[in-house]
Every structure is written in C-alpha cells, then in structure tokens.
Write a protein that binds this DNA or RNA. Structure first.
Length: 838
RNA sequence: GCGGAAGUGGUGAAAUGGCAAACACACCAGCCUUAGGAGCUGGCGCCCAAAAGGCUUAGGGGUUCAAGUCCCCUCUUCCGCACCA
C-alpha cells in the first residue's frame, strides 16, 4: 500500500508536537479562576526532591495522579493539579563539595532538568503555581510561621540529647532515625549528643493527632496504624514510693514511678531507676562503686539505643542498697538501677512486677528478686497459669482489700485512692516527642531568631523577613553550622535594644518546607502572606493525595500538625490536610528495589526515547494495580506500545468515515454494530466505576484492550459499510476519550484526526447507556453438586424457573444426572444453576 | 516477640461466594513482508501419545448447594513496631 508508511504509529513525532502546543497554552492545565460553579477537585502528588533525575517511582506516582486529574477535568470538575520542588537539603551541599558547584545553582539546574522530564511525560500540571522551597519567596513563610509559632509557645529552645549523624554532620529528628541509623546513610550509626536545639511543640497536639486518625477513613489503614504506633499513647498511673531514710542530701523523699498496670502493684518487688534518672545520680554521689556501675549500665543502654539492636541487649542492673515503701501496703522493696529503664519515657522509674511483666520477670530471675503472683484468671476453675502471667482479664489475689476485683476495677480504685491520698494520679504518656528542627547545615531555611547578650533570645520582627541565605559561602564538612562562619550574616543589631547581637546560624529541618507546601499552591504568588485564607478555604482539604508509603510517619504527621496550627492561627477551617490518601506500591526490577548499587535502575528517559511517554505511562498503570509493587519489564512496555500502535492504525484507517458522520444520529442498530456498541458501553461503565472507587487502572487498560480487540476483529465490517459511519464515529471517538487519561498524547492526536473540537481534555467524559450495555443473552453455568457440567445461553431476563428448565433440557446435563435423584435445584439468575443430586 | 499485607500458569496479573487464569509478556506453529524493537492467524495451567477424562489458586482442616474469595491451624515472603513500663 502506498500510504503504509503513514500508518505507522510514531510517538517520536506525535509527542513533541503536542508538547509544544500544550506549552503554548498555559490555561490548559490551570484551575479555572472564575470557577463558574464547577465543583472543585484538588489532586496532589508528593513533590519530589530535585536530585536531577526522575526515577520510575516518580513516573508511577505522577501517572496515577495525572490520569485521575485528566479524568476529573473531563468530568467537568475545576481541577487543581500543581507541582513543585522540595529543594532544600543536604545533597546540594554534598554536590557543592564534590563538584564545587554552589547548592543553589546545582539545585536550580536539577529542577530545570526534571521539569523537562515531566513535561516530556505529558504530565498536566499548572506550572503557574509551581513552588521551589529553596527560594526566598517560599522559605520566608517558613520563617513567618516559625515566628507565629514562637508567639504561641509552640517553638522553644532547650538543651537535650539529640540524634547526631556524623555523616550529615547535623542532628536528626527522632523520625529520621531508623533502627538507630540515619535515614540517609543506612551504614551510619546515629550518636546521641547534648545540644541546644529549637523544637516545635508537636506534643501539644498529640491527642488531637491521634483522635483525628479515626476520622481519616480515606487513608490507608496501614498509615493510620503506623501513626497510632508512632504517637504511642498509653494510659497509666504515676505512684510515689517513699524512700526509706529520706529526705537527706543523698536521699530524696520519694520516687515517682509510671505504670500501666497499677492493678499489679501488690506484686511489686523492686523499684527500678533509669541510669540517667536524677535520683540515680543522687544515690551514686556518695557511693563510688555504684557510680561506676551506673556508668556501665548507661553505656550499655546508650549502645543499645544507638544500634537499635535493643532486643539483643541483655538486661543488667545494680542494687542501690536503698529501699522504697509501696504506698498501698507499706511494703519495703529494694531500689535498683537498670539498663532497660529509659530516663525520657514516663517518669524514668518503674515498679518492677516480675509476676506480671515479661521484662521484669527476666530481670528478677537473673538477680534473685522475689516473684509474687497477684493476678489470677477470672475463671476459678482454670489452672494456675505460669508466670509471668500477662493477661489483663483476671482478678486480683494477694492484694489485701482489693482481692476479687477485676484488673479494670482495681486500676480505677487504686488511681482514685492515689489521687485522694495525694501520692499519685492517672496520667497519659505519649511516645511522640517534640519535633527538633535545628540543623547545623547551610542549605535550609534560616531560623529568624537573634541572640542578644542583653535581651537573650529575640524573635526577628516580621518586617525584617525574609532572612536571606547568603549566596557565596564556603561549604566544608567540618562540624558546626557553615553560616556561623559568615560574619556579615551572624553579626546583627538586636531588634530590641539595638546593641550588638548574633544571628541564629542553624537552619530548619527540610520537613518544615513540605509540611505546608500544598497550601502555597493555591496562592503561589502572594507576597504579603503565605496564602489568602479564602483561597485555602475554597480548595481544602485536598481531595486526593498520592505518594509513597515511606512518608507515613515523617511528612504525613508533620503536615497534619502544621494544618492544626494554621487552623488555630485562624487561616483555614479544615482540621486535616487531605481527605483521601493513596499510597502507591514500589517499582521494582527483577524482584528488587531499583538502586544504583544493584545496577537495576531503569531510566524514564530511556523508556520515553524508545517507546514514547504514552507507552511508558500506560505500562506503569497496566502492569499491576496501583497499590501493589510493580515489576518493571521492558517487554511489557513494548507490548503497550504495540497496543497503542493498533489503536492508532485502527482509528486513522476509519477516521474519514468517522468524520463524515459528524452530526448524524445513531440509527437503530443490530448485528455487529450492536455488539460493538454494547462492548463500548460496558467498557465506559467499567472504567467510570473504577475511577470512582477501586482505581484498578490495570484492568481499565485491559478493558480498553478488549474493546479494541473486538472492534479490530470486525475491521472488515467497518470497511464494508456493514457497520455504518455513525457507529464507527461513536466507537472511535469514545475510544479516544476513554484513552485520554492514560495516553494523553495519542488521544490528543487522534481526537484531532477524528475532527473533535477543542482539546480532548475539555471534552466530556462519555456516559454509559445502560440499555445499550445490557446483554440480551447471557451464559449460565450448570453444575451438579458444585462441579461444572456445561454452560448454557439463556435470555438475559430469564427467571429462575426458565433457567432451570433450560438447564435440565441439556443433553449433557441429562446424561450426568441419569439414574440419580435431583434433591434440590439452586438457581442464581445470571450466574449459575446448581443441581444437588444423590 | 507484637501488628499488618500478601502467596493463583514460564512471567506481570484477572476473578460483588457462582465457568479459575480476563488482559498482556514470553514461548511454539503458520502466514505476510518495504526485514520492522513491524503486522496478521492459531496454540499455550498440570497429568495422559491424543481424545475422553482427571487434577489445579502455599499446605491442612472447616462453613456452604457452591470457596482463590468466608472461618480456624500451619508454612513462606514482604512491611511496620519492638526493653515505651
């Protein structure tokens, strides 16, 4: 054929052509500013760190979000679909060291490169709202928020034990330490150091952050569970044990312990102090042997915490020689110091109940501390259980006047008495700690605080914002903040007294940047406030947030916190940033996570160069359901590319017929036409339904393939005119519309080819006609005792009786039940007939 | 140890309790050809030479007329948490 060449699908010419056209129309992917009564839809994908290269995880994440955004546009929503750059962070400083490129330059050129990649992929973002967190017009608002939080007592400074990564040469938040190692350097063990740090009082919202999870039913249960664990609320009781012989210089009056099982207090046979507990120091101040022992225990604990290998560490302890009195029964128990007691949880001291706590049992067994049984199973017939007996469904024994109470009752009674007699109270303890945000690094948001010799810590007035990060600075790997070596930055006058003062030289954790970035998108150019509250109130909460589950704790808990702070500042009305959260699976290759060290990285650029953006994106959606891990197989991309080729040829081949039928109504159809239209409307129904709920885009793509396979099989009838032009038009235009969320380039091209008006993105999503989608004959399986005999065809509206009759009339069925008695017939219309025979 | 998710052909996978393996990849056979990472036709879970037939959703038990799907036990893999008192 002469025009065979024309019939070749060539993404390398189609895609750049459309990319150019889209770039020339900045309103195409922009939210409608006038809004014209359309319902809003805010779809957001997590912004990337500008490493310089998109990886397949990004491609997958953004293909999912873009498909959803496009679908919602076609459904007539006013869609906000923005993108930006999480542009502060250590890699820029490392790159500066390595290549002698300033962090800013390195970052901005990476952003340019990645933006090109995104545009090449055809992702539909509104670049007018793009944000870059390392630029002053963004990070000045970090500083602004810092000051607002300082005013509200949500920012404070304290000296504390912090996680120090020697590799990063800076501190890390608790959330950034994974099994005792740096989240950026898997091989680097994090040290504990004492440093003055700035903190955000996230614990002020601990309870609300926990309670809010119950209402986030659009979030994966997994993420909610992880956050619940992280917040770690535990209800318990604090009780004072009187110290025998106190108070004197080396002996305090009492030790306050924290327990969740105050009901077991009659079984307490010792009190255990953390090595770092103030009272431990008091005791050991007059006892050099103990002092040495405590140092040893502390060392063991530190090591255990640093390696994270806590389960393997052996419990050790040392008796202090002192005794404490149990306030409930006046019993005298020895006071120990133990390496498994942490100073920064609860009160840093516990009562040890070896009979009903596994850890205490292990410890007591080792040191010969008595074990007392004080809880028995509720069922008096039950055998006496082995110790330690950990169940809370029991009743008290050996507990004086409380014998016979259930654990629950006892806890309440004992708490009440502690309160009444002022030796204790019910308390709630959280595992969540305040968020340490100081970083001794250069490439981050400067903290807007001044240290004045006279006035102490002075916040910078708003009119002195932003504090600009100095540009030309020497990056070295030596400790301490690089900013402290820039005199013009450090030396300032105190805003309060005008005297000489020093500027804070720590910068903010980069998780500050990403905690509120999605609010900035709604008003990205605002230079008087972070965003106009009215705009945020219109767009929030985010309707759909999409990203990796690796952010379940860090980013997703910080941004929930930030949202609550902004709400309390009166800037927004929503309590939570995102209504629905979707966490997509990882992209793997040959069964392993893609990584440079494994050499199994597939480059998106490569895929786009070989198969085009449409094929690459569509494969990312087709190869697995979005929530599961996806194994990248290049053959699969080739397969999708071949499929798109078939679509291209099929459509171009019949485009003229389709165009010619413009404006012509669909006549009454039958035969092949009816069959094809039926399939079309079934496909529309399936895909529309999936977008609303399941998001099984893999089966959506498969459904489109089935449709194309069927239309293509009828190619001769399309050519001969047996299938009339209006039907061809109906089939092809709808096919292109269905494809639009998944293969934007090809559908734009074919939409034009079919004579479609305007952008395909502005066309209406097709509506399934149920009457057309309905089959008039369906298949029903016939089973005997659940085993398949045959399949029969019956009219779709056949009732149970008619189906039964039809089934029993089948030769195969007759043969199978010959000589047997049909005891019962179960008919599930539309599905199956099951003959129960004997 | 605790909690969660998962386990289906050679591979990725599909299946509101109702015909297991849709849709693809790979492979096999054939056709075509402007030899292209092309196109078209057919085959493709396992057992059996083939057909007939039988078997089959990690393993075992159960509920049900009917189980990949629901329940119980076991195994394996992955993820999260883990001296948090």
């Amino acid at each position: 054929m002469a025009d065979e060449k024309e019939l070749r699908y060539d993404p390398a010419t189609i895609e750049p052509k459309w990319q150019e056209r889209w770039a020339a129309d900045p309103t195409l992917y922009a939210a409608d500013p006038h809004d014209s009564g359309k319902p809003k839809y805010y779809v957001l994908e997590m912004l990337p760190y500008p490493s310089g290269q998109l990886h397949m995880g990004h491609v997958r994440n953004y293909s999912i979000g873009d498909a959803l955004a496009r679908h919602m546009w076609m459904r007539g929503y006013n869609v906000l679909h923005p993108m930006g750059w999480d542009a502060f962070g250590l890699p820029a400083e490392n790159a500066a060291l390595k290549n002698n490129t300033p962090p800013r330059e390195w970052t901005l050129s990476n952003i340019a490169a990645m933006k090109r990649q995104m545009q090449r992929l055809g992702l539909g973002y509104d670049w007018a709202t793009e944000i870059t967190t390392c630029l002053p017009d963004y990070y000045r608002w970090n500083q602004w928020f810092f000051l607002r939080m300082y005013e509200r007592g949500l920012v404070y400074r304290k000296k504390s034990k912090v996680n120090w990564c020697p590799e990063c040469a800076t501190v890390l938040a608790n959330e950034q330490v994974i099994d005792g190692r740096c989240w950026r350097h898997e091989d680097t063990i994090v040290e504990l150091r004492d440093l003055e740090q700035w903190f955000f009082r996230i614990t002020a919202y601990a309870q609300e952050l926990l309670d809010g999870l119950d209402k986030l039913d659009g979030w994966p249960e997994k993420v909610r569970t992880m956050q619940r664990n992280w917040i770690g609320r535990s209800e318990g009781t604090e009780v004072d044990f009187t110290v025998e012989g106190g108070p004197e210089e080396s002996s305090p009056a009492k030790i306050r312990v924290f327990t969740t099982r105050v009901d077991t207090i009659f079984g307490a046979t010792s009190v255990q102090l953390a090595p770092e507990h103030a009272i431990t120091a008091q005791f050991s101040s007059t006892d050099s042997v103990l002092k040495e022992k405590v140092a040893e225990l502390l060392d063991e604990q530190k090591k255990a915490r640093e390696t994270g290998d806590i389960g393997a560490i052996e419990k050790h302890g040392a008796p202090t020689g002192r005794f404490a009195i149990n306030p409930y029964n006046g019993k005298r128990v020895p006071i120990w110091v133990a390496n498994y007691i942490l100073a920064d949880y609860g009160t840093g001291a516990i009562m040890s109940v070896p009979g009903h706590d596994a850890r205490d049992f292990e410890f007591a067994s080792k040191y010969g501390i008595p074990v007392r049984r004080v809880i028995a199973p509720a069922d008096p017939q039950a055998e006496e259980p082995a110790l330690p007996y950990l169940s809370e469904d029991g009743i008290l024994i050996n507990s004086g006047e409380y014998n016979g109470l259930t654990c629950d009752e006892a806890q309440q009674r004992l708490q009440h008495i502690a309160k009444e007699q002022a030796f204790g109270e019910a308390t709630i303890t959280f595992r969540l700690k305040d968020w340490g945000v100081s970083r001794q690094r250069y490439w981050g948001t400067p903290i807007p605080m001044i240290h004045c010799e006279r006035d102490g810590i002075v916040p910078l007035p708003d009119d002195q914002l932003p504090v600009i990060l100095p540009a030309n600075i020497e990056i070295t790997q030596t400790g301490g903040s690089p900013l402290s070596r820039v005199p013009e930055f450090v030396n300032v006058t105190c805003p309060k007294c005008g005297g000489p003062a020093r500027r804070e030289t720590d910068t903010m954790d980069t998780f500050v940047d990403s905690s509120w970035y999605f609010y900035r998108y709604v008003d990205a150019k605002n230079d008087v406030e972070p965003y106009a509250p009215a705009k945020a109130q219109h767009w929030f909460p985010i309707d759909q947030y999409i990203g990796g589950v690796e952010h379940a704790i860090l980013h997703l808990i910080y941004s929930r916190f930030w949202t609550k702070v902004m709400r309390d500042l009166g800037m927004i009305l929503n309590d939570e940033p995102a209504q629905r959260l979707f966490t997509q699976g990882m992209v793997i290759k040959d069964g392993a996570k893609m990584s440079k060290s494994k050499g199994n990285v597939v480059s998106p650029d490569d895929m786009v160069a070989r198969y085009g953006a449409d094929s690459t994106r569509m494969y990312a959606l087709f190869a697995a359901p979005p929530d599961r891990d996806l194994d990248w197989q290049e053959d699969g991309v080739a397969g999708v590319s071949r499929f798109l080729g078939r679509v291209w040829r099929l459509t171009t081949r019949h485009a003229e017929a389709a165009r010619s039928a413009k404006g012509q109504p669909l006549a009454e159809t039958s035969g092949t036409s009816l069959k094809l239209l039926r399939k079309l409307h079934q496909t529309i129904a399936k895909i529309t339904h999936d977008f609303a709920g399941r998001w099984h885009f893999n089966t959506c793509v498969a459904a489109i393939m089935e449709l194309v396979n069927e239309v293509q099989a009828a190619d001769a009838q399309l050519t001969s005119g047996e299938v009339p032009a209006p039907v061809i038009r109906e089939l092809l235009t709808n096919l292109v519309l269905l494809l639009a969320p998944f293969a934007p380039y090809l559908s734009a091209e074919l939409w034009e080819e079919l004579g479609g008006e305007g952008a395909v993105l502005r066309a209406s999503w097709p509506i399934s006609n149920p009457a057309l989608a309905k089959e008039d004959e369906i298949e029903v399986s016939v089973q005997s005792n659940g085993k398949l005999i045959t399949v029969i065809r019956v009219p779709a509206d056949a009732d149970a009786k008619a189906i039964e009759v039809a089934a029993l009339a089948e030769e195969k069925v007759k043969a199978r039940i010959a000589g047997k008695t049909v005891v019962k017939v179960i008919v599930v219309p539309g599905k199956t007939v099951n003959l129960v025979v004997k």
